[in-house]
Structure formats: structure tokens, C-alpha cells
């Protein structure tokens, strides 16, 4: 096979979102790993069963570990640190997911009048879900 030349992209919306997809994907993997390791540090081997540990790894919300042997979730499992973690994970997750939805939609509709309209709609959905997620995190 010939050597491939990789074009150097200019700064554009598509390039920034392309980069964001990669960075947020890696960040979600990393944040999941941090939640998993921290759960074991806090004694998950004794306290959690497998599905509970998986739920906590995906999203470190105290509601995800209520049905476990943890005597009191406010001791380590529910505090400002985990709230910040959850907000960061929710931001990356929602943005990564809805940007992916935008890419898939624009693959099939092409360059029509629907493209800017659906972009606007997805932006509103993104705003709605981000605000709702932060609300749920701070209230739980």
C-alpha cells in the first residue's frame, strides 16, 4: 500500500467538533476509569455487587449505589467532588452524544434548508438536557 498523505485541516466548525469528539471520548474513558478505581479505594469489593459497580462506573451518582451494603452514602459517595465529576461527565457525554447525532443526521440530509434548522433544534435539545442533568445532579 502507498503511503497516505494526511491533509492538514483549517480551523472550522467541523474540525473543532471532530477534535472535540476525540477529546471528549478519551475524557469519558478516563473519567470512568477514575470512578471505578475510586470505588475500589472506598471499599467497593466488600460493599457493591457487579451491576451496582457498573452503574457507578458509568455515572458516579449516589442514587446508583443506594441498593448496596454502603452504610451511609454521604460518607464519601455523595459530596461536592462527585457532583463536579458528574457535571463534567454529563457535559462531555451529552455534547459527545448529540454531536454524534448531528453528524449522523447531516450524513443523510445533505446540504439542504433542513441542515441549519436541525442544527438549531439539536442545540436546543443540548441546552435542555445539559440544564436538566445539572439540575438532577445538584438535587440528588
Amino acid at each position: 500500500m502507498r503511503n497516505r498523505t494526511v491533509p492538514q485541516p483549517a480551523m472550522s466548525f467541523e474540525y473543532i467538533m471532530w477534535m472535540f469528539t476525540r477529546i471528549s471520548g478519551l475524557a469519558l474513558l478516563f473519567l470512568g476509569a477514575v470512578s471505578l478505581v475510586m470505588a475500589f479505594v472506598m471499599g467497593a469489593r466488600e460493599l457493591l455487587d457487579m451491576p451496582t459497580l457498573a452503574r457507578w462506573t458509568f455515572f458516579p451518582n449516589p442514587n446508583h449505589v443506594v441498593n448496596s451494603k454502603i452504610p451511609d452514602v454521604t460518607q464519601g459517595w455523595a459530596n461536592a467532588y462527585w457532583q463536579i465529576m458528574q457535571i463534567v461527565i454529563a457535559f462531555f457525554g451529552i455534547s459527545h452524544g448529540l454531536n454524534g447525532l448531528r453528524v449522523i443526521i447531516e450524513d443523510y440530509i445533505g446540504n439542504t434548508i433542513w441542515q441549519p434548522m436541525l442544527r438549531g433544534l439539536i442545540f436546543l435539545v443540548w441546552l435542555f438536557f445539559t440544564i436538566m442533568a445539572v439540575f438532577v445532579i445538584l438535587a440528588s
Partner: peptide, 8 residues
């Protein structure tokens, strides 16, 4: 997320 918001 939507369901937990409604429940909460």
C-alpha cells in the same frame, strides 16, 4: 436523564 428528572 429525563426519567430521573421526572421521578426526582
Amino acid at each position: 436523564v429525563f426519567a430521573s428528572f421526572l421521578t426526582q
